[in-house]
Design a protein around this nucleic acid. Structure first.
Length: 806
DNA sequence: AGCCCCGGTGAAGTC
DNA sequence: CACCGGGGCT
């Protein structure tokens, strides 16, 4: 049987509609992945090269699995050649080849959230701002959401709304922090996660030839989980798809659960506005769950107003009702759920892997872990502190990162004195000030120490020089040896293992094992073949374009080839791990028979026969933060919908009447979401109604109105299309081409030579000033400058990016 | 320079 | 309750 015949009529239509814009609204469990994989296979069978297909998924794991399935249909080599991955990983890969156009090094470092927070903290210190007012995580969120809406710092600073919002929230200097943050990352040759998308937009906007190149290349574009894309991603897709418009987006507005990181459900609700001739298909048959589960889920989501009207149904059996479990305390909840799983497992002879526990917050896992340990049941926790977050791993990785990009100041700070090498805090402070004043990286300062005449004694200066030399030598090793040899060399030269082996405590032994595990990962990395995409980029991305209109890019790309392109370097290894998603980071082998514990967010896309949704309490789920805002509550409800639809055979809702929060017991009320489920699908403990219910939920009448409500919804949806779409601010961004933050120009030798005594200059931080004296020879000229506001400073002209005013 | 203890504070979700 | 950061002690 040909694979297309395995699809139902709508699914098949989706797979066969390959040209022109297509939107697939895929209800939970409707065979979405199957449609996507078959559709891609079909496109290739019809003759398209897999290199011309771009498929953007939500996690790398989803991409891997989809590739494997496509490989089974049409062969592995074609599947591997697909451009498939998360937005971040695909565009990070492309940016490696284009970053120099934006002034970033091509081996730029990707900063994770910890790095970003560290940068924010340093900025707060230099600005003398209170980090209790300017909480780094809040500051970072605000910066992140600006970037996700393509607001560069310049626009931010000139936007009256942002400015007055920040004043109102007692953080008037937030815009300046944003600016400083962006400049520091640029100086460090680093991008954070949001920059990967933001800078891709800058690239596509400011370099029309690059835009054309990728528009030509990607003839077919597919976006999975489209309901969770943000504005920045939306614009990238729109730009890339503009030429062929063979754009297929797949999603379920009912499962949009990532607005906190900028996802905008309007992207999917408004898709047909951007592509009026879009083909819209609704996958409504659920193949996953029983009728009780599907109907219960429908009754939940019917409470939301902003959504497509659809009719998810199933031909599966009725199944069992959703069972409500009530416990006195959070600990009892742990035991009760563990016991329930134990009993069902024994009675029905099921594997542990048939069960999952889903919670709103990671902190809730503890009680269940205890419950399982008591009963000797194996479990696996998804998420939490991942391997790559561990201190010893981050330390080692910091050395790797420095080898690749010595300007990476966050890594530099992390290891400049670890293991201890006599470089103390006061030295680091002095160096940091010099670096900041000259807009240079820490490495630049310690590598050119004599140029900066710091007030540092000869001994310390020697240690700094030695360290700089070591970093440099690591750089050479990283270039010339494969990742495994380089990693071994670096780890052995730093003395980290010696430091970890000092005491032989169990913790230390485990740390050493982790480092060894990391080395194994590097070994595994060099033993796998490079992906075709990397080969393609390395060799000649313009192959597929050579017949297109002239590009003139080929030379650039060739110039970037390393001497031995077969060597898999540590640089590539770092690229790979920087963008692993949480789902990818789980070291535990996936096939072991264990009960799964995870947040509901992490469960998206997964399915389990038996699902326990725990902590079903007001202020926990929905979380109190969501209770402020109606749209947040709707998102919470979608989250609940996602949770319930993970279940194939049966779902359980568990809540506790008392729970420890902030260290003291708090009385809890059962979640409103339990009441929102049509009660004919629910089974309460002891067969009765719930006792503690604030509004006893009787069946039926709430939902007899449901069809008029749903009818209205369509009206509400049509309204949504008209006025809202994107705010004027955002709109303007799309069009305006000059406001986004493009980075400072490189140092200009002419400008330096034109500076004389008495020249008026401008400095990024210190403002305007007059040059009092110059010493040294080009290019190491040092100037003494009297700044109008910042006092007198000695700066090295080649580092301080001064603007000449007279 | 490093360790330990104390107190304060904070917990939603994540590429 | 658990973690982090600061301060003080060795």
């Amino acid at each position: 049987m040909h694979y297309l015949e395995e699809l139902n009529p709508t699914q098949r239509e989706a797979a066969e509609h390959t040209e022109g814009p297509l939107m697939i609204i895929a209800g939970a469990g409707s065979g979405k992945t199957r449609v996507l994989t078959y559709r891609i296979a079909h496109i290739i069978e019809k003759g398209a090269s897999p290199f011309t297909i771009l498929a953007l998924t939500f996690t790398n794991k989803a991409a891997r699995e989809m590739k494997a399935r496509i490989g089974k249909l049409i062969g592995d080599s074609a599947a591997k050649a697909l451009w498939m991955g998360t937005f971040h990983s695909v565009f990070a890969r492309i940016l490696r080849f284009e970053a120099e156009k934006l002034g970033y090094p091509k081996n730029f470092t990707i900063y994770d959230t910890d790095d970003s927070k560290g940068v924010i903290k340093e900025i707060l210190k230099t600005f003398n701002l209170d980090d209790k007012v300017y909480k780094p995580s809040l500051v970072l969120n605000r910066i992140s959401s600006a970037k996700n809406n393509l607001i560069g710092y310049k626009q931010y600073l000139s936007n009256p709304t942002y400015m007055s919002d920040d004043r109102a929230s007692q953080k008037p200097r937030l815009g300046e922090v944003y600016e400083a943050y962006q400049k520091r990352l640029f100086r460090a040759g680093a991008m954070d996660f949001d920059d990967l998308l933001f800078n891709t937009n800058v690239l596509l906007r400011d370099f029309p030839d690059v835009l054309i190149k990728y528009q030509d290349k990607f003839k077919y574009i597919l976006v999975d989980e489209y309901q969770d894309t943000n504005f920045s991603q939306y614009v990238i897709v729109k730009q890339l798809a503009a030429r062929y418009e063979n754009l297929c987006v797949v999603g379920d507005d009912a499962q949009s659960i990532y607005s906190f990181r900028g996802a905008n459900i309007q992207n999917i609700l408004n898709f047909e506005k951007d592509y009026p001739d879009v083909k819209k298909l609704f996958l409504e048959q659920n193949y996953r769950s029983t009728q009780n589960i599907v109907n219960a889920a429908n009754s939940i989501i019917a409470k939301n107003t902003e959504q497509f009207e659809k009719n998810v149904f199933t031909q599966n059996g009725v199944g069992e009702k959703i069972k409500v479990l009530c416990s006195a305390t959070d600990n009892e909840e742990g035991y009760k759920v563990a016991n329930s799983i134990f009993n069902i497992k024994m009675n029905r002879q099921l594997p542990h892997a048939a069960f999952a526990i889903l919670y709103r917050t990671n902190a809730q896992s503890r009680a269940f872990e205890e419950g399982f340990r008591k009963l000797n049941m194996p479990y696996r926790i998804y998420g939490g502190v991942s391997f790559y977050q561990r201190k010893e791993i981050k330390d080692v990785l910091a050395y790797f990162r420095l080898a690749i990009n010595p300007d990476d100041d966050q890594s530099m700070r992390r290891v400049i004195n670890y293991p201890a090498r006599g470089i103390g805090q006061s030295t680091i402070d002095k160096i940091s000030v010099l670096a900041a004043d000259n807009d240079a990286s820490i490495f630049t300062v310690i590598d050119n120490l004599q140029d900066f005449n710091p007030e540092i004694n000869a001994g310390t200066a020697g240690k700094l020089k030695d360290f700089a030399a070591m970093v440099k030598s690591f750089g050479n090793v990283a270039m010339q040896q494969d990742a495994y040899e380089a990693a071994n060399h670096i780890i052995n030269s730093t003395g980290i293992l010696r430091d970890l082996n000092k005491e032989k405590t169990p913790e230390e032994i485990s740390r050493v094992e982790n480092v060894e595990e990391l080395l194994n990962a590097v070994k595994g990395f060099i033993d796998t073949e490079r992906t075709p995409q990397e080969e393609e980029l390395k060799q000649d991305i313009t192959d597929s374009l050579s017949f297109g209109e002239g590009r003139g890019e080929a030379e650039d790309l060739f110039a970037q080839q390393p001497a031995d392109s077969n060597l898999k370097t540590i640089d590539e290894f770092m690229q790979e791990i920087a963008l692993l998603t949480d789902a990818d980071k789980n070291k535990d082998d996936e096939h072991a028979d264990k009960i799964s514990l995870m947040t509901i967010h992490a469960s998206k896309g997964l399915e389990f026969p038996y699902v326990y949704i725990v902590g079903m309490e007001e202020n926990l789920f929905p979380s109190q933060m969501a209770l402020m805002d109606k749209s947040d509550l709707e998102e919470e409800r979608r989250l609940f919908y996602v949770a319930v639809t993970r279940a194939e055979k049966q779902a359980f809702l568990s809540y506790a009447e008392r729970r420890f929060k902030y260290g003291n017991p708090v009385f809890c009320e059962a979640s409103r979401f339990i009441d929102e489920i049509d009660s004919q699908y629910l089974e309460y403990p002891d067969g009765g109604e719930r006792t503690a219910s604030p509004t006893p939920s009787k069946g039926g009448e709430l939902y007899t109105q449901s069809s008029p409500i749903r009818g209205d919804k369509r009206g509400a949806y049509v309204d949504l299309l008209k006025p809202k779409q994107t705010s004027p601010v955002l709109k303007r961004n799309l069009v305006s081409t000059n406001n986004m933050n493009t980075q400072a120009a490189p140092v200009d030798a002419q400008a330096i030579k034109s500076i004389k005594e008495g020249t008026l200059v401008q400095h990024d931080k210190f403002g305007n000033g007059t040059v009092l004296a110059l010493e040294g020879d080009f290019p190491n000229i040092k100037a003494t400058i009297q700044f109008d506001l910042g006092g007198q400073k000695q700066l090295l002209l080649k580092y301080a990016k001064l603007k000449v005013l007279s």
